[in-house]
């Protein structure tokens, strides 16, 4: 998996990075997923993720920005400056076609993982 390989490589290099490996890997997927309905700016993305996960994924909102930077560099999202609901200047992100494809890849991978882990964790004989 290109995506995960790149990811672990990066994680190893910056071991002092605040997010745990697994979470950081999924963070990208979450960001892409958040952008699926339409463009949004960083503040919105952070709050949406936090809310949808019912506050389980309590990340520092700041750690979202390196992830956005990375995703944009890979060409999965694109950005433009716009105005927020309360009339402030904000940078909006939207999914690119490549990002959409990546999201499908990542999601199916994730689902396979979950099924596999679920299978392992199911009580024997249950």
């Amino acid at each position: 998996m290109v995506y995960l390989c790149l990811y672990t490589g990066m994680a190893k290099k910056h071991a002092e990075s605040p997010s745990p490996e697994m979470l950081q890997g999924t963070l990208d997927m979450l960001v892409l997923q958040t952008l699926l309905p339409g463009a949004a700016h960083g503040h919105t993305i952070a709050h949406v993720i936090e809310k949808r996960s019912e506050d389980v994924l309590q990340v520092e909102h700041g750690s979202l920005y390196p992830a956005l930077h990375r995703l944009e560099d890979r060409g999965w999202i694109a950005s433009f400056w716009g105005t927020s609901d309360n009339n402030r200047k904000a940078r909006y992100y939207r999914l690119t076609p490549a990002g959409r494809k990546q999201l499908t890849v990542a999601t199916s991978h994730w689902e396979r993982m979950v099924r596999a882990i679920g299978g392992v964790l199911r009580p024997v004989g249950g």
């Binding site: 700016h41 503040h43 952070a46 909102h61 700041g62 920005y65 309360n86 402030r88 940078r91």
Partner: peptide
């Protein structure tokens, strides 16, 4: 600039 924008909105 983006971080500043986040702060302003928040």
């Amino acid at each position: 600039d983006e971080l500043t924008s986040y702060l302003e909105i928040e």
